[in-house]
Each structure stands twice: as structure tokens, then as C-alpha cells.
Design a protein around this nucleic acid. Structure first.
Lengths: 247, 247
DNA sequence: GAGCACTCCGTACGGCGTACGGTACACCGT
DNA sequence: ACGGTGTACCGTACGCCGTACGGAGTGCTC
């Protein structure tokens, strides 16, 4: 099964599940909601790789196959997990201008990736069209509404910001997870990697890598991803500002 | 095993493999290079999910366990695949200014993701420090060298561009793959999804999503990711230009 | 010719998603 | 009270996965 991608099952059934048409409880207390919540817990703490039907069932005190009464398969379960956590995203009514709003959107999405890193591993093409996805889209469009931009420009600019957040968020989340996952701090990693690299790396051949790498390494270890996230975001917002100004 | 993340094995052994210290051929013609090349073929055509040791071995006409003579495990194999394809990236000496160069870097990385979509599924924290990774880093830094920026700024700006490319590339690649993966064109998908959505979606509650979604959908189906990629990239480069101008 | 190092791989273990078919419970009409 | 029926639950099994282990075959060195 390709957990990484979405939309494998019967679309009508998926839609009914996403919008929770008829989510009754079985006699052992099982329900779509409970299954989804448990699966999210597992993926949050141990990663998407550790998510298995047997593991979810075990945590619910139920046989693995019982889950299939509520959910067609693992792919659909992941779809449900996605829409569920999209509902958690912070959506306050903001007073400021488009820039402050867009900045909030970027940070809220980063926070979401931090809370649910497995989101970065699931495909976003043909997304599960659940209520929370739509609510999120509607809210985020609001950041650029009223700027005089065309609807298409609004959509494209939002897409650009979210693309940046996805890429930079991936780097930030992975960097944050690396020590726990490997049992090794960044410093420890460099202590091992550095000497090995010195034996094979020729600074003459890659002078820029040597010079800049050293400077960057000195400035912030392997790279402080939070500062990098903000810095890049500001550049992108500057560019968007220039674009809006030109209209 | 967590294929999605890297750096699990013995670092000394990994380094020796990456830099191909002593890549001899066995009596059945097996070698690290051949194993890596075969694994890349499989991942390119059928995705990382279809990559298995048995499958690689089968294609090489060899028992699965024979691979372990050359490669410590699947994790290390993926590391080798990464460094290998990073070597393919287009690295011409470019005449223009920093902007043209950075634009080339972005496009070359996008092309790389297109050719090897599985790259988007592997972690980038603690990357495999192979010769091609270093060459790529050195080359890409060259785009911003000579602009008068500090080394740290050069590194951070490059990181920002690459983050954008990763995020936008993910969207572009997934959008391109979706029809083949699902056997359904974007239009067909909407034909199924649209009516289902209409039954549950309330335009009153999400007026922006309704309005902009419709406009965006009309303008370019589910979204032309190539145009979106370029558009966002130009905004980011505009922002970087403003930053460089201020120095 | 003996010994040895190294390549190759058959088997097996514990995991996975899920198809299939059976069991047992809850509720219905009578 | 009772039989009938739908559905919740789940034991088992199949074909995958990564890889530990130990054995077999090959070719080189003395």
C-alpha cells in the first residue's frame, strides 16, 4: 500500500466518512472518530512509519480486522487523519493588513507541521475534500482578500507561500527530530562526520563549500531552521509586497 | 525500517561507500554501482514504495541476501541513491548575474525532482555527505558569490530558495503524477468530486473558498503547477533583490 | 594440496495490509 | 418468550517486507 498518497478508495464512501455522515458507535465503543484520534496519536509520537492497523487496533483493545468495519482501509484512514488535524490550525480573525495575516498563515502552518510531522509525508495532490480542508482554504484566502488582486492571483500567491512553508517546514521539522531519532545531538554528529569528511574532502576543489560551509557552521551549527524559516519568509513577503505595489 | 530517514548505519562504512573506496566487482558482476543504479531505476519508475531489496536483487539476477555483501542495508542504499542522483544535476558555468544563476539553480533542482520524485520523500537533515552533495552545494553557492553578501547570508538565501523549490516541486511533481497513479485525469477527478462536494459544501459558510476556488478552477483546472512554480519563484527572487539592494 | 577469505544465498522470523468466512450480539416482529 | 436477521467483531491466512544466521561454493595464498 502506498501510504504516501491519497484518494485510492471509493470517493463516495470517502466523502461520507470525511463529513462524518452517520458515525455511530459499535458495541465495543469503536467509532471512526476514536480510530482516527488513535491513529493520529501514534503517527504524532512514533511517525507515519509506525502507524499500522494492528497497532491502532491494539491500542483500542480490539482486533485488527474490526477497524475495517469503520474504515475501508489504511489509505482512507490517513485521509481522515489529514482532514482531522487541518481542523486544529489556528484561525483567529486578525486586525492587521495582508502582510501580518499572511505571516500568521505561514506560522500557523509551520506549527501544524511541527505538531504533526507526518503531514509532510503525505501527498497533497487530490487532497481529501473534507470540511476542515475547505475551512482552512477559506480562512487563508482571507489574508489576501481586499487587496485588489484578482482571485487567480490571490490563489497563486497563497499557493506560493504555502509551498515555501512546506519546504522550509520540512527542513525545520527534520532538523528538530534528528537528535531524537538518531540519539545524537548536532554537535555529536559533526564530531563524527567532520573528521571523516576531512579525509575525503578537498577544499581546493570546492572552495565555496569550504568557506561558506565553515562560516555557516560556525554561525549556527548545522543551521538554525527557525531563523532560516523567518528570514526566507520575509524575503518572499517582500517580493509579494512589490507585486501588490505594482498593481 | 524507516526508509524516509537517513544516517542509520555506521558512519565510517557509509562514508567509504559514498566516496566509493574500494568498489570491486564480485564474481557474479555485482557492485555497489550496479546495485545503486538498479535501485534508482526502480524508484524512478515505480516509486520509493516499490523499492525493495528483493526487487533489486531479482532485477540483477541474484539472491536478495547477496546485496548485503555490498551494502549494509536499505537505509544506506537510499543514501547512496541520493548522492548518485545529486550528481546528475545540471551545473553549467553561467555568464549572467546572481538572479539568472539562482533561477537556474531553482529550475535545475525542479528538474531533478521531476526525474527522481522519490527524492522528495527522503529526509534532508543529516544528509549523506557524498561527493555529489558537496559539489552541488559548492556550485549553488556560486550563484550568490560576488554579490557582497556575507557568507552566512549567502547560505541562508540559498537555503530559502531551495526550500521554496522543495515545496513547490512537491506540488508540481505530485500533480504530474496524480493522473498516472490514479488512472484518472484531473477533469475526471473533478467530475466525480464536484457533485459529491456540492452536496456537503455550503458556499455561504465559505464564500471565499467558493469564489476563489471557482475562479482558480476555471483558470487552470486544479492549478497549473508549472506556472505557479515560476510565479512564486519570481516573487521570492524579487524579495531577494530588494534585500541585496539594501546592502 | 591445505587453508582461508570472501561471495553468494536458502531459510526463517517478526512485521505489514487486508481478503475471507465465521461467530456472537442486539434488535426486530410476532 | 422466541426465532430471524443484520451487523460488529475477529481468527486465520496469503503474499509482501527487511534482514539475522549459517552454510555452500569459489579462487587466492602459501
Amino acid at each position: 500500500m502506498a501510504v504516501e498518497h491519497t484518494g485510492t478508495g471509493d470517493p463516495t464512501r470517502s466523502m461520507a466518512l470525511l463529513w462524518r455522515a452517520a458515525d455511530r458507535e459499535g458495541r465495543s465503543g469503536l467509532s471512526v472518530d476514536r480510530i482516527v484520534a488513535t491513529a493520529i496519536e501514534i503517527a504524532d509520537t512514533d511517525g507515519l512509519g509506525a502507524l499500522s492497523m494492528r497497532r491502532v487496533a491494539e491500542r483500542l483493545g480490539v482486533g485488527a480486522m474490526s477497524l475495517y468495519t469503520y474504515v475501508p482501509g489504511k489509505g482512507e484512514l490517513v485521509d481522515l487523519m489529514i482532514d482531522q488535524v487541518l481542523g486544529e490550525i489556528d484561525r483567529p480573525a486578525l486586525p492587521g493588513g495582508w502582510r501580518a495575516k499572511l505571516e500568521h498563515v505561514a506560522r500557523a502552518n509551520l506549527a501544524l507541521y511541527r505538531a504533526h510531522p507526518w503531514l509532510l509525508q503525505v501527498g497533497t495532490a487530490r487532497p481529501p475534500m473534507g470540511p476542515n480542508l475547505l475551512a482552512k482554504y477559506d480562512y487563508e484566502l482571507g489574508a489576501l482578500d481586499g487587496t485588489g488582486l484578482s482571485d487567480v492571483d490571490i490563489d497563486t500567491l497563497l499557493t506560493a507561500v504555502l509551498a515555501y512553508v512546506t519546504g522550509a517546514g520540512q527542513a525545520a521539522v527534520e532538523a528538530a527530530q534528528a537528535p531524537a531519532r538518531s540519539g545524537m545531538s548536532d554537535d555529536q554528529w559533526w564530531e563524527v562526520q567532520g573528521p571523516l569528511l576531512e579525509k575525503v574532502f578537498d577544499p581546493q576543489r570546492f572552495p565555496l563549500a569550504a568557506r561558506v560551509g565553515a562560516a555557516a557552521g560556525e554561525a549556527y551549527g548545522l543551521g538554525d531552521p527557525d531563523r532560516a524559516f523567518d528570514f526566507g519568509l520575509q524575503r518572499l513577503l517582500d517580493g509579494i509586497e512589490a507585486f501588490i505595489g505594482k498593481r
